[in-house]
Amino acid sequence: MKLINKIRSRRGETLVEMLVSITLLVLAMSILAAMLSAAYNSDVSARKMDDKLREELSAAEEASSAESTGTVSIYSIKPDGKPDESAPDVQIDVDVYGGAGALRIYKPKSTP
């Protein structure tokens, strides 16, 4: 009822009131725009991150030639649940697929 009266009222707002209101509206819109823009940028960066991850994953899994070689050491687990660090039980040479800094896998060394 008060709102209807206000709308029907012929009395206007004071200049200061209008200026404050407009300032607040501009501020509100600016905040919203900035936040939506930041959200959009985050979404774009997440998509890029996801695409890069998938590319690295498929590159590692489908790689046909090894980037480097390595050795896998196998340690028995003692009854206390910790590995027996004295010496590895078995050591196996492996080929490592995938570039440095990217996702990588290893496979048994291929025999020439």
Partner: peptide, 10 residues
């Protein structure tokens, strides 16, 4: 049988 696998130096 439980084991731990480590890639040496990587």
């Amino acid at each position: 049988h439980e084991f731990e696998l480590r890639v040496d130096g990587d």
